[in-house]
Structure formats: C-alpha cells, structure tokens
Write a protein that binds this DNA or RNA. Structure first.
Lengths: 327, 327
DNA sequence: GTGAAAGCGCTAACAC
DNA sequence: GTGTTAGCGCTTTCAC
C-alpha cells in the first residue's frame, strides 16, 4: 500500500506538504504542488480513509438503516438519499437491519466509532431507546417512520390524512363495506392509517366491522393473498379494500383474480406508496403516491445540515391520490 | 467518545490488558479480566473500528457493487450475501455504482484504503481493467456478470443454455416467430442470451429476423413496453417473445394488454430471473429461475475463503424453467 | 500475567 | 512556503 510518505519521498517534500496538496489547504507553491501531484499520479496514491478519519473524526459516510432491501418503497427513498449525499461528497453505508436488534447494535457502533457520521433510519422497529440515546450525541434523522415521543427530526407524510382520503375515495365511488389490510400496528404508520380509515368511515356514518380489519404479519405479497382468502370467506363480504401498502394490494389483486372475481367490478382496491410495479399490475392500481425520492433527498439534506451545525426541523411532505383502474 | 484509555484507567490496568481482554488473546488473569469487563460495561465502551483497522488492516467489511438497488434480482442476491457475511462476522457496504466510473473509483479506494477487505461485484459495466488490476492485490469475486478474459473467479449461471431452453420451450409450444427483448449487448449476459436464442432458432430451422431483435436501453418496465410498441408495428409480427429479464417481460405484458391482445393466446411471453413480481403479473409469468439467494451465499463464501487464503474457483449454478400462465 | 512503548497513515499546530 | 512533530485509538512486540 502506497502511503503519504512514499509520495513525499518521491516528490522530495515533507508529508505535511503532500497533505496540504491533497486537501488544498494552505498556500503551496505552484511548482511544489505540480511536483507532488505528479508523484501522486505516478504512484497511483489514494489517501487512507482510515488514517484520515482517525485524525479528523470525519468519514464522509452516512448510515442508512432499512428493515429490508426488498421493498421498492425503500429503494426509491435510497435513490434520493444517495444522489444528494454523493453530490455533497458523502457516501452511503446501507444497513439492512432485518428488524434484528443485534444487527442494529453493530451499525450503531459504527457511528460511535466515528466510522459513520450520522444515521438516516427508516426502520420502524428500531430500538427507540437506543436511538434516542444516540441522538443526543450524533446526528440522526428518521425517514418515513418516526417516534412521536422522540425529539429526533423526521421526514414523512401525513399517513392519517392520506388514509382518510383513500377511504373517502372508495366511499365516494359508492362503497359502504370497506375492508382494511393493515400492517402490524406496532408501527406508527399502521396505527395512523387505521385512524384515517376509521375517521372516514365514521364521518360517513358507515359501520366498521372488526372482521373487515386484517393485520398482515409481514410485508409480502403473500400476506395480501392471505388477507383476501380470509375476507372472502366472510358472510358479509366487503366490496372495497384499502391496503396500506401496494405490496398487499398487489397480492390481494392476484388472489381476487384467482377466485374468479373482477377488480374493480366485484371488489375495488386501493393501495399505498405508488411503487413502480403498481402501474404494471392489471388492472393498474389506484394508490396513494408518496414522494419517496423527495423524502430521501430531504432526509439527506437534513442530516448534512445537522452535520454542519444547522438546526433542522421535521417535515411533512405532500401525498397524492393517484386514480387508476382498480377503483 | 470513550476510548480504550478510559477503560484502562477505570479498571486500573494498562491499555494493553484491555486490548487483550477485548480480543481474548493472551492469558489474562481471571480477576483482571472481570475487572476490565466490568469497566467496559460501565463505560459502555465500543472499540473504534478506525483505530483497530489502522493497526490491523482488517475491517470486516465487504464491498458489494451493484448497478442499481431498484432491481429485485440484485436485492435477492444481496440477501444471500448478507446472511452469509453476517454469520461470519462480516458486514456489507452496499455500493450503488449507477454504472458511473467516478463512483466506482470512490468505492475502489475504500478497498485500497483497507476500509473494506474485498469486493463482490455485480456491476456489468464496471471498469474491467481497474477491477483486474485491483484483483492482483485484493480478493474480488464477480457475481452473475463476469469477464471471460479475466482471472477473477465468478458465480453465475449458464445464460446461453438457459436462453436456449427458454426459446426451445416456445418452439415446442408451436411458435415459429419468436422475438427477443434483450439488454444492451455490451453486457456479457446479453450476448450469451442472444446466442442461446439464435442457437435454438437455428437448430429448429427457424428464421431469425433482424426486426424481431429488440435491444432495450435501460432495465426498466418502460423498456419492455416500448419494445412491444415497436414489435407490434411490424408487418410480420412475432407470436412469442423471449425477454432476457422479467422486468422487460412485465412491461411487455402490460403493453400487450393495453393493445387489447391476450397473453398467451395472441402472444406468448417468457421472462428471465423469477423475481417476486413475476408471479404477481397476470397472467403469471413463465420464466427462467435463477438461484439468486444461492448465488449471493456462494459469492460471500468464496470471498471469505479467499480472505482466509483458501483457493476458490468459479461456479456455474443451475437454472430452472418455471412454466406458468404466460406461455 | 502485565506494562511500556512503537507505530499503523494521516492532519494540523507550531516553528522557521 | 515548507518541515517537524504530536497524536487520533488501537494492537503487539518486548521487557519485566
């Protein structure tokens, strides 16, 4: 491995001068600079991030915590984070937590070790206490999912309102029996979307039947399919379904077809997120569009502001109802 | 930040002893050990990866290079890599290259800096010269896409044979006019799958018409849709299509429906990869299944073997034709 | 069994 | 403008 010493030797200068050239700090004579740069090129020198970090406590690395890489919702957010971070000289360390506390600890330690400078967390099941503790010393932003009790700034949408609008859309189409396919209600967004659903139902004087409320165990297509199997066995079947994720909606769509029913004629269906595949489903999915890329971009900007000592405050972005063929 | 010195002070020992306890190296007196461990817990000490790496040139970090995080094909491979790596005490630094040479350089430097110990590359458009040069000094594995000219070990499938089987499947169903939706043929897999397509056609005495060969500019649903727009304008329309990625096939499916045609009655369609969406499409997609998770697992094992000085050799895994409703 | 000290590659304060 | 040097947090010889 070629070090700063090798470069200094070849250029006939001190390591300090090489360092100065690398970081173009103090004024270095044009001639010396050229000589050093030539040496750098000749040796194909790349400064050790390790040595530099150890000295400066800066790593230009951001930790991004996601529960699973397999959900297109997250990948779109990550695109936003990554573009923004890279433009400002930062890189991303993508950490799939799998909602596993042990993995979380590993990643948290990277932060405490100064290997990373801050965290953008999208993990709903993250250890909140630890995260709050960490947030006292390090820049942390929550993206999408957040903790109402915590002072950690977040970027999100108004899930309750969005859910309210989704269900209202179904009601306006004439539906009275509307089921909800929800996630695990340990998650804030799941509770919020349920609230939105209930509000819309109540406000229109519609009954909410316990049996129309389905909580999926995992964020997978299969969960949407299973939800339909359950709901279609009911005596009093729903005529419309609000799924809190496109993933569930797509699974549901598949299963409805398999049962020989039609969307939206027999059952209307609305999803949430507007993942790219939602437009490829047939019929294409009516859904609530989240500004995923934008959420990523803003999270990244917020954390880099924090890194620079700028005060940041939480942001709630706009969602949008996208009417397509499934309603 | 609490350092090894703080622990040493509190425990009333030297930093060397703390280090020994941390790495349970030399024999440390049971009593001293307990004392040190108590201090570690009390201070909530986590050793600095930076300091350690600088000293040992080990980071327990693996670089994973992918062109884009948005493709479910890659995410499934990453799951395999991650599970395997974590089980062996390694972590993943996921690097989205966007096929951008500048980003690649950043990530390559992480390796040269000893911030990462090895690379698993899935990037087909990676700078091959640089990668080969790097491979002389560092453990590198190519996953899925590889370079025939290079000595770098790889894990992949037999794309040519798989394509041959896919097309043969269509021919056996009675199709004579078969189109190919291919990727950019700069990529090896694209050339291989084209070869497989041509072999199958020739062997069955079928004509290959230039106009049935479509090369998509990007790996997006839209590319599959555009392919259909083009193919359906032909005078001599194909009756079946082999798409080298499920992404193209799903886009194609959508566009075929939009044009009021039916799959498989009017046009049969076969994809490649068996991404999770492929089963949610309607009709569900016939496709070539790649053992993505397995490819990831094996890549990770290979690179960790290399890290331990074990010799590794390239592996070609089995694919499988999965017949579903689109053919 | 434990401590002292060198040194990994780098930056920055201080000297000249 | 440039060089000398201390020291970031850690591991590992070498003494004792």
């Amino acid at each position: 491995m070629v070090t700063i010493h090798d470069v200094a030797k070849l250029a006939g200068v001190s390591v300090a001068t090489v360092s100065r050239v690398m970081n173009d700090h103090a004024r270095v004579a044009e001639k010396t600079k050229t000589r050093v740069e030539r040496a750098i090129n000749e040796l194909n020198y790349a400064p050790s991030v390790l040595g530099r970090n150890l000295r400066t406590s800066k790593s230009s690395l951001l930790l991004v915590l996601i529960p699973s890489i397999s959900n297109p919702f997250y990948t779109e957010i990550i695109n936003g984070i990554e573009d923004t971070a890279i433009a400002r000289g930062y890189n991303i360390l993508l950490c799939e937590t799998d909602s596993n506390p042990q993995r979380e600890t590993i990643y948290f330690n990277l932060l405490r070790n100064r290997l990373a400078e801050g965290i953008i967390s999208m993990d709903p099941s993250v250890n909140k206490n630890k995260l709050n503790e960490l947030a006292e010393s390090y820049p942390i932003i929550q993206c999408s999912e957040y903790d109402t009790e915590s002072p950690i700034p977040y970027v999100t949408i108004d899930s309750e309102k969005a859910a309210y609008e989704a269900v209202t859309h179904l009601i306006e189409l004439g539906h009275r029996k509307i089921a909800l396919i929800n996630s695990d209600e340990r998650f804030l967004y799941a509770r919020q979307r349920r609230n939105g659903y209930e509000q819309a139902m109540k406000q229109h004087g519609l009954a909410i039947r316990e049996e129309w409320l389905y909580n999926a165990p995992q964020l997978k297509f299969a969960a949407g399919q299973e939800a339909i199997s359950t709901l279609m066995q009911l005596e009093d079947k729903p005529t419309a379904i609000f799924a809190v994720s496109d993933i569930y909606a797509i699974g549901a769509l598949k299963e409805i077809h398999r049962k020989g029913k039609k969307v939206p004629e027999d059952i209307a269906l609305i999803g949430f997120d507007k993942i790219s595949f939602s437009d490829m489903a047939c019929p294409s999915l009516t859904t609530i569009s989240q500004p995923m890329y934008e959420m990523g971009r803003i999270s990244a900007e917020m954390i880099m502001d924090k890194l620079n000592g700028v005060n940041v405050s939480s942001k709630v972005l706009e969602h949008r109802l996208v009417c397509r063929e499934s309603t």
